[in-house]
Design a protein around this nucleic acid. Structure first.
Lengths: 206, 206, 206, 206
DNA sequence: AATGAATGAGTGTTCATTCAT
DNA sequence: AATGAATGAACACTCATTCAT
């Protein structure tokens, strides 16, 4: 009653955190293995080794679980891509900025390609909005960068929008389709495509 | 039950064809109005004016109906885009070919944007394969065109693949996101992006 | 195709009516045996010898089934009690009218005492309103009768209300409690109680 | 664990009694606020400021808690009504006795009308028996009173039973239905109804 | 062929009760 | 004693599919 008052609750919170972790992990597995429609709460609970009722101690409903799984992935994706983009833009030339962004994106997607597939193919209203919202954020950053390079506002917006969609989907397609060529090749190709369009000096063809 | 055995089949096939037609049309309406999850077989049958049981006389299961709806849409899309591409490639320069293809694609998508949205956002493994298959066909054609222009084989393949994915997804995004700028602007932007990359003379900025 | 066009649908409707009947009967049994809370849709369906899904072909939800069971009972009760009351009031003296009403009420309740018990003890918002509404209807009729006999309006309302509640609950209690005396004895007692209060000549004590 | 074994029990019992008190109070609040179906054990425990598990240290199951809440209410009701009845019967005339009893009953019910409503409308077998048991006790007292006034035994029993049910339900209905007239009016009406029936001199109409 | 009633496994969710701590 | 996380059977309801007519 006197020794460790402040740390009293820690074990409980730790336990709780672990349960959330187990459920999220199980949710991710089930989502990847069975798709959104097949990701029933009972299946997720079973995969987490808990009873269906326990799941509801930690999440208010099914979509909250799925939302957490996707949310974490998107948090990671957004953080890393944003950072790559923001770090690359000011210092170096266009080619380097594009290259860094593409690589960051491929890194993230490549770590959980199956999850990204579900996200890309079945985004069930849960995550669709977020993806678009992030794309718009990047749109704005890219627009700013273009304005800084003297591109007229209207053109800047269109160009930014187009280029962002291009990078987003070409990287996604590379992971999902697994075409027969190496990652570096796509990176180079995509970088060149975007860089040229943005009017920077194209990187040499490797 | 005995009179005209030989002529029997034709009318029956005709009737059968009409039923399939009604079901597919109903399926499309329901899919667009209620999404994939809301497209229950009962709802489709009701919209077609038939009984749920009859639907199974013509389609083995729900996904077959959905598949047929999407299949026809993709048939149309593929036919028109292929034609635009094939007609444009030989005669004119790169910019024209790209422009014609982009316009054809936007035309098709624009005619049934809601259906395309369902296809793009909810395609539940039903249609994913077909879309990729068509993209690969266009990949090959584009590769051929590049080879004809002296591009080395490996580069040709990568460039074709990248450009095809770019056009596919930027057009789709334009329809689904409804960003604030005019269609002609995107067409010009996308055409310029692709044309420049392919090494053709970029079209003048309108 | 020509012989019996008008009667075509009859068998189907008949079948449908029978299913409704089976479900209502099963619902009544389950309600009586397990109470409102124990009357699960699965249990009712099983008692009716059908699948849970089939129940929903005939009723939109659980309360509709329960409502139908209780509704039919209350329809019967209201019809017979109203008739007894209305037929007795004009022609004969007060004692006869009261007597006829009490007998009618005991007849109806006595036919399905267990159902009446559920109704009286667990009326789960489903039927509560109806019971009160019917009581109010009788209130009005009784008030009218009293006004016709020269009772001042305010007194008439209170007296009618009191007497109606008395008859309603004493009869219900007799069925539910099964006290040790004969039905005729309660009928006589209740008739005398009410008749005296209404100022009529009390019937002789049997 | 060894020091004061003999005095241990008293404080514990006190503590235990307090816990029971808190649970019963919480149970009453929840019962009134959410009805029987909404009175989950978790909700009651939360309202009592204890954990769901602790509740089971003091009560074997949910119905025991509800039973205790209703039991206490009925204890109060029985005590006060019995006293009013017993005090009134010997000394004064019939009208006064009935009047005193009716007033006592309305007092008790009026103090916790919402609880009485739950008791009357949703008593899930938990309390039904007790209510009947109390009514029977009053039956006996009333029968005795009637026998003392020279009424033949069989008649006395029936009359007592009838009158007790009448008073019980008319008062309850007055609280639950909230008809438009004042309490004194019902008291007068009910007193007159019963008194007349018992053969006493009816009180003057106020 | 066509019907549409019937099916039944499945869904997301709740809650009285238990039990390891 | 007290906790509160964990349980799991049960609930109302859905829908792709089947089958007797």
């Amino acid at each position: 009653m006197s020794a460790r008052p402040a740390r009293r609750r820690a074990p409980q919170q730790e336990r709780s955190r672990q349960m959330v972790e187990r459920i999220v992990t199980a949710g991710r597995e089930v989502l990847v293995a069975h798709g959104y429609d097949g990701a029933s709460t009972n299946r997720i609970a079973a995969a987490a080794g808990i009873s269906p009722g326990s799941l509801y101690q930690y999440f208010p409903d099914k979509d909250a679980v799925v939302g957490e799984v996707l949310g974490r992935y998107l948090d990671d994706l957004e953080t890393r891509v944003s950072r790559a983009f923001l770090e690359a833009v000011p210092a170096r030339d266009v080619a380097d900025a594009v290259h860094a962004t593409v690589v960051a994106l491929l890194d993230v997607i490549g770590e959980q390609p199956d999850l990204h597939r579900v996200l890309a193919e079945q985004l069930p209203r849960t995550a669709g909005g977020r993806r678009v919202a992030f794309a718009r954020r990047i749109d704005e950053l890219a627009t700013m960068a273009l304005l800084g390079r003297g591109v007229p506002p209207e053109r800047a917006r269109v160009t930014a929008w187009t280029v962002v969609r291009t990078v987003e989907h070409v990287t996604t397609s590379y992971i999902l389709e697994r075409p027969g060529f190496d990652r570096e090749v796509v990176v180079a190709e995509l970088t060149r495509l975007v860089t040229t369009h943005l009017g920077g000096s194209a990187p040499g063809v490797s």
